[in-house]
Design a protein around this nucleic acid. Structure first.
Lengths: 265, 265
DNA sequence: GGTTGTGAACATATTCACAGCA
DNA sequence: TGCTGTGAATATGTTCACAACC
């Protein structure tokens, strides 16, 4: 990778760690809730609990953005909402297209969480001619033939792929050729994209498989030897398991891991 | 946390790193595709390309499972499929309930990727009495009143929450009380759960916000100074961006980052 | 020759613990 | 006194590079 520079980002500068970026939306959500309840300020401890992380991590994350808090007091909710929104680029409006209007595509189109942030569903696109014109989420579905035109006319740079796996690569190529540079991929395939294009993927079955892995551990290990790492899930980019984590410094004594009866009826 | 032991898992043992666990489903998917094409063996280089990671990472990941490859040859596809399935706990059948049969819940119920792995949708549950009895994905929706009974009778330990945010915490409590120990949460809320319960979350709007962050960088930085970290996305637990990554050792010279015209249209 | 498996080097992320300031 | 901001310590993850082996 070029050089490998940018080791420590000197207080307030470019180069926010990816792990931090991935948590900013979490903080933003918690802050928005506080804002709606007209809470003026919040401590790192409280906000961390609301976001499901620990306070040291939160403070370190915020330190990459700058010094937006007040010692002895906490953070100004409104101000933080603004700063994080700006950092995430949500003060501008992002037109988004959703390609593949099956069950999932329709769910995404109806999902309120998009509009409430800086996103606007500019168009719904499907390859099925029978879908064309049909309204989904109060918006007519358009045919794939017009994909390029739609992207260009709306200045879309973010595309969501909710097609079957087989169609995803081709759709991504057309999106990219038309000007899209960020893709959220729900199709269970690896997309090959040129440099400069970001792809994030969400795969429902992968998440379940990761849960199954831990679930299996719980069932098996508790009798065996270690039993230790059993309740230690991801907390990664998307993972972010909670496991009692909401309670600030509360003892993690509890454990649990009962066999849970199970049985038939 | 306890002690913090288990630093280096001595060749084949417990304690597979979380990052590795999160990639196993990816490898499994690629291997399944190879298996369907009756490919007998595959090298780390080829498999890595198919899974969208690099080969060193893949080999290291596999080394945590044991030595399942043959030097000079590669990995036996069928054997690896089995070993990874077993490691993930997919050789057994996991009954799953989906709570909240809105657009998203219906999409999940119809999602073929579940059944194809070791998962079986045991029941669909919704709080709306009008939904009760209605068939979704060939299965009658059941009312929330029967949640506990359903969990117990089917021995469900994995629950999927696709309800509105407001209902999620309460649903999770009922699921857990009835015996569920792993939850996949699609509701945009932080769930507080007791120790020993795993939660993984998928938040559509968070993924988009992360994309927006990088998108903003592309638009802004390229004229400014750095311009370096621009095309360097997540590759984290869920992120896993591709960026030319599919090509094995191909030069990452290209760059791109054109301003992309944009404009109105 | 070709490819795995892995120690060692490097990079990133998290947590600790406390100085510094309101 | 209470809370932030951050260096230092630790933990986790990735990549390199090569010995071991087929």
């Amino acid at each position: 990778m070029a050089t490998g520079r940018t080791h420590r980002p000197a207080t307030r500068s470019r180069g926010i760690p990816e792990a931090t970026v991935a948590r900013l939306p979490l903080y933003l959500r918690a802050l928005t809730a506080l804002s709606e309840r007209s809470v003026p300020t919040v401590s790192s401890e409280e906000l961390a609990a609301a976001a499901g992380v620990n306070s040291a991590k939160l403070r370190k994350d915020f330190s990459y953005l700058g010094s937006y808090g007040t010692r002895g007091v906490g953070y100004d909710v409104e101000y933080l909402v603004y700063q994080i929104s700006r950092e995430l680029g949500l003060t501008q409006d992002w037109p988004v297209v959703i390609v593949g209007i099956g069950n999932l595509g329709a769910a995404l189109a109806n999902y309120g969480g998009f509009a409430s942030r800086g996103f606007r569903v500019a168009a719904l696109i499907d390859a099925d001619p029978a879908m064309a014109g049909k309204p989904v989420a109060g918006m007519p579905v358009q045919h794939t033939d017009d994909l390029e035109k739609i992207i260009e006319e709306n200045g879309v740079s973010i595309g969501v792929i909710a097609t079957p796996a087989g169609a995803a690569q081709q759709v991504s190529e057309r999106l990219i050729a038309a000007g899209v540079t960020s893709i959220l991929n729900f199709a269970p395939t690896v997309l090959s994209v040129p440099d400069g294009v970001d792809v994030r993927k969400v795969d429902l079955s992968i998440e379940l498989q990761i849960l199954a892995f831990h679930e299996q551990r719980k069932a098996g290990e508790e009798t065996g030897g270690g039993a230790e790492a059993a309740g230690t899930p991801a907390e990664g980019t998307t993972g972010g398991a909670s496991g009692t984590g909401a309670a600030p410094a509360a003892g993690r004594a509890g454990r649990r891991l009962r066999a849970q009866g199970r049985a038939r009826g």
